[in-house]
């Protein structure tokens, strides 16, 4: 909150997404500055998860541009014409962006420690010892050092999600995407995951968080974006929007979730 630079890290311009005839995103513009925590809320089907998934190309971009750290995502622009990037180049862009999923998606055949070590050893080709030390540090940071040798099936949902956060952080990304990270959790486990995210925000990480946790948005968010029907309805200071929403749709949504 104090460390936000003026420099935009993520810039989304005129983003559209079609699934066949279905027009899911209808022109999204969003800018996230370095060190900012950008919270995105909205009803189911508003396109907020799709937008997030476009940023690391889990969805193709139908129209518009996304750039992260000045680099165009998914394309190379040559003489005003876009060319698809090769898979290798896409993988390289994804390495700079960490992602946390609603369903955790831990690798079930690997222990918590192996989950966190997987990408550093296999993608960044770090040594085993280095990766293990780093992984134990990260697991400790999310409060799970003692669970390092447990398989995901032996961990609660909240613990799995914290391992998933540690796994994403192991790649030392400059940007973290959270796709409804607490929506699949029992209510009493939500707090632990949000605390880890809060600490991450305090450490200066740039974060885009799609969530239904209005309390988190108010407390941790630097900006709040309300999406509905594939467009951004309202965007600004979270405390102001929550206290005093300008649009009827925002008012209606907030009255239902608060």
């Amino acid at each position: 909150m104090t460390m936000i630079a003026e420099k935009p890290l993520v810039r989304i311009e005129g983003l559209h997404k079609y699934y066949g005839q279905h027009h899911v995103l209808r022109g999204i513009d969003l800018t996230v500055k370095q060190g900012e925590v950008s919270v995105v809320i909205g009803p189911s089907g508003s396109g907020k998860s799709t937008m997030l998934r476009c940023i690391n190309l889990l969805e193709t971009i139908s129209a518009g541009r996304i750039s992260v750290d000045g680099q165009l995502i998914g394309y190379r622009e040559v003489n005003g014409r876009l060319h698809d990037l090769k898979k290798k180049e896409i993988a390289a862009q994804r390495r700079e962006i960490g992602m946390v999923f609603q369903r955790f998606n831990l690798f079930p055949h690997k222990t918590a420690l192996q989950n966190v070590m997987e990408a550093p050893t296999q993608v960044k080709r770090k040594g085993e010892d280095f990766a293990r030390t780093q992984a134990l540090e990260l697991l400790d940071r999310v409060g799970l050092a003692q669970r390092a040798n447990h398989y995901p099936a032996q961990l609660s949902g909240g613990q799995q999600q914290r391992v998933a956060i540690a796994r994403a952080l192991a790649m030392e990304p400059g940007l973290m995407l959270f796709d409804e990270p607490t929506s699949a959790l029992d209510p009493e486990l939500v707090g632990d995951v949000l605390n880890v995210m809060k600490d991450l925000a305090k450490s200066g990480m740039t974060m885009i968080v799609v969530t239904h946790e209005i309390g988190f948005a108010r407390e941790v968010g630097d900006t709040l974006t309300f999406m509905d029907g594939g467009v951004v309805v309202e965007s600004g200071d979270p405390r102001e929007i929550i206290a005093n929403p300008q649009h009827d749709r925002t008012k209606e949504f907030l009255s239902r979730v608060l």
């Binding site: 447990h150 398989y151 032996q154």
Partner: peptide, 28 residues
């Protein structure tokens, strides 16, 4: 072999608390 982590789900891995604590202390 291929069922590890899934089929052996609740056969908790015996983590030696002392060793794990030492490892964590080294890590942090």
């Amino acid at each position: 072999y291929y069922g590890k982590g899934v089929d052996s789900g609740q056969a908790a891995v015996a983590v030696n608390p002392a060793a794990a604590r030492a490892a964590a202390a080294v890590a942090a």
